[in-house]
Design a protein around this nucleic acid. Structure first.
Lengths: 157, 157
DNA sequence: ATTCATAATTAGGTTGCCTAATAAACATTT
DNA sequence: AAATGTTTATTAGGCAACCTAATTATGAAT
């Protein structure tokens, strides 16, 4: 028996309303949103990992499958924003790092993010913005801990 | 000169973390997420409009272009979940309404939403859930009022 | 030595949008 | 009334951002 939850419905509608928002205009970088996210992910991951990032680590970080990562990497490598090296101890593994050009793009992209989000933060106010970020983090955490149930049978589930 | 905004960066990361979440499992309905959103939109819009919804109204409601709406409608019409009629006073306009089968699917889908979101609402707590919904509404409103700046020239903008 | 598991890749497909061009009907101007 | 412009929906075609299944190479375990 499913509980009727107006709050749940409201939340659902709110999240759906965000679907088509294009948060940042990346045109200045000449790259696509998915490319930038990948570069951000590597920038972040390599700080604490001098070996460069594995495809599987990136996959986990971005919540996408490894074929998707391979695809993204391939394009960005030919454009010279990152490079791969073989892992020294496990030859199945490749290590991905930013090139100098990649670092430059990341800086540009960060500026674009600031520019895009300053307006929103001003609109919401600093306090509410922080709270929103925290709530959204909790939402992500919830879905990470509790992956969606799989369906079989005839009901809605 | 762009202000450095850690709050903006945090918000950005939080929103990006939501990207790949599949909020509701619609398999029980046999339809895709975009189909369900369209049916919800019509269900909502026709309450206050006995004439059925125009393509342009749906387009506005879902924040997608009218060719996208036409495409969605076409599929759902052949599946028998909605039907079109010509407007009586303006022959350019078509009016879209749910069929009985469409109404049934909408009810099923609403149950699926409740089922999917009850868990999240429990996790966040009722109060925080409501607050989150409100904050997200404000975000939507911000982007509706203030469409993204267009780019030209060489800077990040 | 064989079997199993893991890492990355290749190939091909789907979803969910988009833009540009077109057709039909309505509205406005001359 | 005719021409022009505008609005509505549609058709055609394309792209971004993912996915699954199958494959190859290597490493780990029995």
């Amino acid at each position: 028996m499913v509980k009727d939850s107006p709050t749940g419905q409201k939340l659902f509608e709110s999240f759906m309303g965000l679907r088509t928002i294009s948060w940042v205009n990346w045109q200045g970088t000449g790259l696509k949103a998915s490319d930038i996210r990948l570069l951000f992910c590597i920038k972040k991951g390599v700080r604490s990992d001098t070996n460069g990032m594995m495809v599987s680590e990136i996959s986990n970080c971005l919540h996408v499958t490894s074929p998707t990562v391979t695809q993204l990497i391939k394009e960005l490598e030919t454009n010279g924003f990152l490079y791969r090296t073989m892992d020294e101890t496990d030859r199945r593994v490749i290590r991905v790092r930013l090139t100098e050009a990649g670092e430059v793009i990341v800086q540009k992209a960060k500026a674009a993010v600031s520019d895009a989000f300053n307006g929103l933060v001003d609109y919401l106010g600093e306090e509410d913005s922080v709270q929103l970020a925290n709530l959204l983090s909790r939402v992500s955490k919830y879905y990470k801990e509790r992956p969606p149930r799989l369906v079989e049978g005839e009901g809605v589930w």
